[in-house]
Amino acid sequence: MAHFEGLTPNSGLTEVLRAFPRNSKPLLHLLNSIMCADGELSRGQRETIAAIVSQQNDVAYCAFYHSLFAEVLTAPNAQPNVDVEPLAEYARRLIVGDSGELDRAFKAALSAGWSQAALYETVEVVGIFNFINTIVKAAGLVQPQARPCPMPTAEGLAHSYMDMAESIGSCSPGPVSSCRSR
Rank of each mutant, 00 (worst) to 15 (best):
G156R: 12
E47C: 02
C149I: 02
G156D: 08
R43D: 06
L157Y: 10
R43L: 14
G174W: 09
R93Q: 12
A138G: 12
V142S: 12
L17D: 07
G100M: 15
F106R: 06
F69E: 08
F106T: 15
I128K: 07
A70V: 12
N81M: 09
A37C: 08
S170C: 15
K107L: 14
Q79A: 05
M35T: 02
A88S: 02
P21V: 08
S167L: 04
L87C: 01
C179P: 03
Y120M: 13
A63W: 04
H3N: 13
L17P: 02
A108M: 05
I34A: 04
G169P: 09
L73W: 07
G156P: 00
S172H: 05
K137N: 03
N81G: 10
V176L: 13
G169T: 14
L17F: 09
Y120T: 05
I34R: 08
Q55Y: 12
Q56I: 01
L27G: 07
G174K: 07
F129I: 07
M162I: 05
A109W: 01
D163A: 07
E166H: 11
F69N: 11
C171I: 12
G140I: 15
V82L: 15
G127N: 10
Y120L: 10
Q56V: 01
P9E: 02
V82H: 14
M162Q: 12
A63Y: 07
L41E: 06
V59D: 01
E40R: 08
C149T: 12
C149P: 09
I128T: 13
M162V: 05
V82C: 10
D83F: 13
A158W: 00
Q45W: 11
S160Y: 02
P76D: 06
N133C: 04
C171W: 08
A88R: 11
E155H: 07
L110R: 04
A146Y: 12
G44Y: 11
G44C: 04
L102A: 02
G174I: 03
V16A: 00
P26G: 01
L87W: 08
E85T: 12
C36K: 09
L94A: 09
V126C: 04
A50E: 08
P76M: 15
P144Y: 00
I132D: 03
S181L: 15
P150C: 04
A105M: 11
M164K: 08
A78Q: 07
L27T: 13
T122R: 04
A70L: 15
N57K: 14
L141C: 13
A158K: 03
A75H: 07
E15A: 14
L68C: 05
Y90Q: 09
Q116M: 12
V59C: 01
A165H: 11
R43V: 14
P152F: 06
L157C: 10
P76C: 14
